[in-house]
Design a protein around this nucleic acid. Sequence first.
DNA 1: AATTTTTGTTAGACTAATCTAACATTTTAG
DNA 2: CTAAAATGTTAGATTAGTCTAACAAAAATT
Lengths: 216, 216
Amino acid sequence: MTLTEENYLKALFHLSTENEEVSVLDLSKSLTIKMPTVNSMVKKLSGKGLISYEKYKPLMLTQSGKRAAGLIIRKHRLVEMFLVQHLGFGWDEVHEIAEQIEHIKSQRFFDRIDQLLDFPKVDPHGSPIPDINGEVVFQNYKKLEECVENQMVMFMSVGSSQDSFLKLIDKLNLKLGDIIKVLEIQEFDKTMRVLVNETSEQNLSQMVAANILVKT
Amino acid sequence: MTLTEENYLKALFHLSTENEEVSVLDLSKSLTIKMPTVNSMVKKLSGKGLISYEKYKPLMLTQSGKRAAGLIIRKHRLVEMFLVQHLGFGWDEVHEIAEQIEHIKSQRFFDRIDQLLDFPKVDPHGSPIPDINGEVVFQNYKKLEECVENQMVMFMSVGSSQDSFLKLIDKLNLKLGDIIKVLEIQEFDKTMRVLVNETSEQNLSQMVAANILVKT
DNA sequence: AATTTTTGTTAGACTAATCTAACATTTTAG
DNA sequence: CTAAAATGTTAGATTAGTCTAACAAAAATT
């Protein structure tokens, strides 16, 4: 598979987990590649049995397409974990590099990284690392936004990996694993005042709270 | 620069250190890319000021071409070192993976690897790692082949990185840094009987001895 | 010095991945 | 339910990197 094909599969995989149906336009926007190009690549991948495609119908990954995409995402997330844990990168710096390294052709390279990291189950953003069959374990975390006053939860994952969001979380001194207690929710704008690890108080806008995924 | 362009520069750099003059045919053979393709790529790189090219004349890297090539080789060798020292690969397994990772676009990635390795000066094969300006320090090692009876030398580098040669050296239990004493040279075929680290005796064919680079 | 061989160049075709322009279908809205 | 808008498809052009075939120059050989 070419690097380009891998990127199409990965994008379709991500869109499929976020939306019920995925259109050519969705895929086109997500890759910032024009629709006719996407259209022809989709046909090509359909020919390879990775995408099931019928004219004017929503796009779907086949079983083998899902597996292939899962394996690429596995590589991506393993690499992100490696970059953070062994090369000292911040969680906001790793995406771009992992995008490149995920395409390296060497099973053993990724096996060794997996081993070096002691077989991690999540990446630095709390997203699950697919297993060696490309299978992802679904996480049913809740958005902090949905929590009520006085509830105590643990910060497990982020809903966005946008640079600006991750940097903000850093600035707020929040880390995965932190215990968050909801102290007060402003009725007007849903801003939350929270207590982190029983020590520091922070105010979180609704938009931030919506991207903080927690376990109760 | 594209991956392809980087590979042309690297190949030309290597050929230039091995030979006084490098022809289009040499480069073509070394890349296993047909001459007309090489010809047009050489023109392209000449247009970018990386190769100085005149019709029917030998090929030469410009200063900036040399620097660019040196920096790619630096990345390659840093990665090889990392693969051996931190991921447990054998020195015969790292070339192919390094060929891919050397093209990653991220200065910081390689800086961190350099730091993690504590700024190594040579790669796992004893080849020098170019500095941050792509400058290579010339090593004037001698071939073991050229040594005389009773001479004691240190194994510093290999003259070939062919898989089969590296595996053979492993099988002979030879490692970089070993002390080699020449016990006897067969007049007939120049086979050498050597003593390694004062302990194990080995017989080395002339071809092997020619690819063992030593410091006296 | 002339001829042959080797090396180098030019011209033109092919593939993968992209694009724009034009056309077609489906969905949405009045 | 038709017209407009949104989405999807087809056709054809473009670029990077490759190739083969044909031709040209330089080097080697006789």
